[in-house]
Design a protein around this nucleic acid. Sequence first.
DNA 1: CCTACTTCAGTGGTCTGACCACACATATCC
DNA 2: GGATATGTGTGGTCAGACCACTGAAGTAGG
Lengths: 218, 218
Amino acid sequence: MQPLEKVSERPVSQPEKNTKVYVEIVRQLREMIYKDELKPGDKIPSERELSERLNAGRSSVREALRALELLGLIETRRGEGTFIRDFRGNQLVQLLSTFILQDDKAKQDVIETKSMIEVDCLYLAAEKVQQEEIERLKVWIDEHNFEDEEFFKTIAELADNHLFYRIWYILNDYYNALNLKVSPSEKEDYQKLVDSLATKRGDLILERYRMLRKMSTS
Amino acid sequence: MQPLEKVSERPVSQPEKNTKVYVEIVRQLREMIYKDELKPGDKIPSERELSERLNAGRSSVREALRALELLGLIETRRGEGTFIRDFRGNQLVQLLSTFILQDDKAKQDVIETKSMIEVDCLYLAAEKVQQEEIERLKVWIDEHNFEDEEFFKTIAELADNHLFYRIWYILNDYYNALNLKVSPSEKEDYQKLVDSLATKRGDLILERYRMLRKMSTS
DNA sequence: CCTACTTCAGTGGTCTGACCACACATATCC
DNA sequence: GGATATGTGTGGTCAGACCACTGAAGTAGG
């Protein structure tokens, strides 16, 4: 034990900022995750240890952790610990949408944006995908009954762009939260769309996408 | 009662067991806001009052409030109170991406994504913009020395889609953070690009954009 | 009467310490 | 060896104590 000196201890290491402690802790956590290269599933230090290491009260640490939990970035299991979470939309979008999206314009924006992001993902997938993967995808379409979002999730993955994937994922959650769930189209339309990827022709892909979505070809 | 509830994993039938207090408080708050028709700027009850009314500890109330604050849904002012925030925007992407975006490939993804988002914005702008605004933009190009990002910020605004605007804005921030600042192109190229908007021809816009960015026309 | 100042109640911000419920590893017992 | 107790560590929650700050009520001075 250390001698209990009562030196003037500043909360956390931060030069006289107005930033709240819990925000600072969020920042530190992000840094920690980055520096230690923590991946989804990894464990982060316990609340008590963080409280000590960051020189803050446990309640402040908890405020930060709870916020991150609600964001879906971490996961806590009583008796075990706190873990980095594999990102998923979780309740967050649900939460936000019930709070936010009464606005009709916002709703329209979601629809519009999702559609365009999907096309972007299709373009990227067309550039990057191997013929072999296209074949596999076609077989998958044939052999499974799937939701529309499963298909585009696959496309977003094939696009091999983490940012686009995240963006699409979020938009899709919004979509669902708005009760705009897309009903699956005909398998034939999916097949045609996938075929168009092989051609790597942007205009054709766009046309097939619009066909699938039954949009006008404006 | 509440037709909004979609219910995923919390059968409200037995609210005791598996629900953390702070999550329940978030739920109650949402309900309260909905029932009392609270709008941005309105004040919500103090932490102590909530703690009493909801029969929970103040720290639990705070965990809920801090989470909502980090989400940008509420705003707290010491000595004054807690207020509903004007959150028409979607800072979701912002929050998540500041946390995510760490790996090496991320840099390449940013470049790729920004480029495609810009094209999307151009398409949208082309659809929505008035001839008069195009003229004004052309004059502006002529009469000002501007940064590339100023130009595309304008385009993103003209696209009239808040989501795209946010996404572009964030990507641009990352771009700068990664020292990838785009040097302004020739005014002539901007002019040609803007001209292409008037035609509303996607292929032409894309071509002009690639010319501006000196990308191959693959 | 009207300013200018003081006071005070209310609010968020933070910390501490105390329990509880639970998970897991260890030691113990049969 | 396998089943069972036990111990330690973890998150979950609460209560209470200060602090810093705001705004309004109250007060003193002009």
